[in-house]
């Protein structure tokens, strides 16, 4: 199991446990986290699963995937260097403890 903490825009923290292979988006959707929409189901066609990876986890989650940057440009909230599409972060054991922050809006 891989523990992921989602920090909503209002500061609410929710801890979820996923399996390796889940994405940060799919885990959130499966558990009903409000701050992630995931409209295209992880096909990188929208930017409604935008999240900010906590600094300490930037290395473990790696760089943005090919095309991810272009999609992020259409995100509803400010895009920072911590911004990722959560559908593109696939969980591995190395992500146990990962913390992501969610933007105020996704659409």
């Amino acid at each position: 199991m891989v523990k992921v903490t989602y920090v909503a825009h209002d500061g609410t923290r929710t801890e979820l446990h996923g399996d390796p292979g889940d994405s940060v988006m799919s885990l959130a959707i499966a558990q009903g986290i409000d701050g992630i929409v995931g409209e295209c189901g992880g096909s990188m066609m929208c930017a409604t699963c935008h999240c900010y990876v906590e600094e300490d986890w930037a290395e473990a989650t790696g760089p943005r995937m090919d095309g991810e940057e272009d999609m992020l440009e259409s995100a509803a909230c400010e895009v920072t260097e911590r911004s990722r599409l959560s559908c593109q972060i696939k969980l591995t054991e190395a992500h146990d403890g990962l913390v992501v922050h969610l933007p105020e809006e996704q659409v």
């Binding site: 990188m44 090919d66 095309g67 991810e68 272009d70 999609m71 440009e73 259409s74």
Partner: peptide
């Protein structure tokens, strides 16, 4: 095809 950049420019 496999060109998210152009696709997003087109949408805008």
């Amino acid at each position: 095809i496999n060109d998210a950049r152009t696709h997003m420019q087109a949408r805008r």
